[in-house]
Structure formats: structure tokens, C-alpha cells
């Protein structure tokens, strides 16, 4: 079973439908016991970082997320879920986040007024390292993005693909051990996005690195 963590940060229907299209058994849940029993964990989210952290605290989910990471359970972050995996976000005047991968989240500062924020739509990724979750995905493939802030991991070793927008080149896919996390939405990115989710279903992080 795949646990899709529900921490009141946005609509999870399309995440669930995308995994169902691949034949996976999913549960949208905020129950620590269900998450503890899951074979794989998805940590999605849209919205604001401060409210999301507050919800995680109130729901008592932070210890179980950290335990999932320690237990080498395959863990997929998406969008806001990816941002709060890092140490700190500039959003809402500054928020300390989960610190599972070293790095910060900062806002787009477009110099050209034609570069609108949020960054919304299909943009290309350039692979910077191989990763099992990027298998069978051509370089320069387009994925669907919706975000105003972007992740900046401290180590290039944690970045697997980059995207450019509004004068910034940022990490669109991050990873560390059993964590893989995308700023884009694979669940809304057509067949290429499904390929990434299928790769996640097949992923055995202990065996691959």
C-alpha cells in the first residue's frame, strides 16, 4: 500500500488517480499507523509553507515522517512536500522546515515583468545526474509546474535535474538515499509523469545505492 500523506495542504485527488492509473493501491491518510505500515510514502502538497508545517505539527506527523526516512521506505516529495523537506523556506516571513535534505527555499525575483509568478505551466528539465526515478525519461522532457518559491539544495550531489525560469536555474528534482522529491507535479505531467511514478513504484533504494 502507498500512503499519500494528507496534511491539509491541497487537493490530493490527482495524485491518487495517477497512482490508481498505474494499478497501485493507495490510501490518502493522516493516520501515523497507516503511514508506518506503508510500503511507499508520497508527500505531496500545494499552498503555503507555514500553514503546512503547522498542520504537520498539529497532526503529529513529523516523527513518523522522520522514521519513514530512517527505515529506508521509498519516499516521494511533490511540490510543497519537496520544499518542506529542506531546512528553511523564505515564505511567510521565514519558516523552519523538516531539514531532511540540507538547503533553502527562496522566491522567484523576476527582472522581466513578462516572467510571471507563480511559475505555472510546462517547463523542461535538464538531467544533471542519473537516478532510477528518471529512467526512461528523455532529457529536456517537460513537466507541469505551479510554484512561486523554489528549492536550492546546498549540495549539487542532492540535485538530479534542473529547470530555468525567471532568471533562476533551480533544482527541479532532489534526492538523498530513499528520498526523491520533485518541484514539478508528475501526477499532472501526462505520460512522462506517469513514467516517473511507475519508476517510483519499482524503486528499491537500498538495492540501487
Amino acid at each position: 500500500m502507498i500512503a499519500i500523506i494528507d496534511y491539509k495542504a491541497g487537493n490530493l485527488t490527482s495524485v491518487k488517480l495517477a497512482f490508481e492509473a498505474l494499478g497501485a493501491n493507495t490510501s490518502i491518510t493522516s493516520d501515523p499507523d497507516v503511514i508506518r505500515r506503508a510500503e511507499r510514502v508520497v508527500f505531496p502538497g500545494v499552498g503555503a509553507a507555514a500553514a503546512a508545517m503547522q498542520n504537520l505539527i498539529e497532526l503529529g506527523l513529523i516523527p513518523i515522517i522522520k522514521q519513514t526516512i530512517l527505515n529506508q521506505i521509498p519516499f516521494l516529495g511533490i511540490c510543497l512536500g519537496t520544499q518542506i523537506i529542506l531546512d528553511h523556506s523564505e515564505e511567510d516571513g521565514g519558516v523552519h522546515t523538516l531539514g531532511l535534505i540540507p538547503g533553502n527555499v527562496i522566491r522567484f525575483q523576476p527582472q522581466n515583468p513578462r516572467d510571471k509568478v507563480p511559475h505555472m505551466g510546462w517547463n523542461r528539465i535538464q538531467k544533471t545526474q542519473d537516478h532510477p526515478l528518471l529512467a526512461n525519461i528523455p532529457d529536456q522532457s517537460e513537466f507541469y509546474f505551479v510554484h512561486s518559491y523554489y528549492p536550492t539544495p546546498h549540495s549539487r550531489g542532492n540535485s538530479f535535474a534542473e529547470t530555468s525560469y525567471a532568471g533562476a536555474t533551480f533544482s527541479a528534482a532532489l534526492g538523498h538515499n530513499n528520498i526523491f522529491a520533485t518541484q514539478f507535479h508528475p501526477e499532472k505531467s501526462g505520460r512522462i509523469g506517469l513514467q516517473l511514478l511507475e519508476n517510483f513504484l519499482q524503486w528499491n533504494p537500498q538495492g540501487s545505492s
Binding site: 511559475h119 505551466g121 510546462w122 517547463n123 523542461r124 517537460e142 509546474f145 530555468s164
Partner: peptide
């Protein structure tokens, strides 16, 4: 580069 969207 952000692509231009075609929306039926």
C-alpha cells in the same frame, strides 16, 4: 524555458 500552453 517555460512553454506556451495550448488549451482545447
Amino acid at each position: 524555458m517555460l512553454t506556451r500552453r495550448i488549451i482545447p
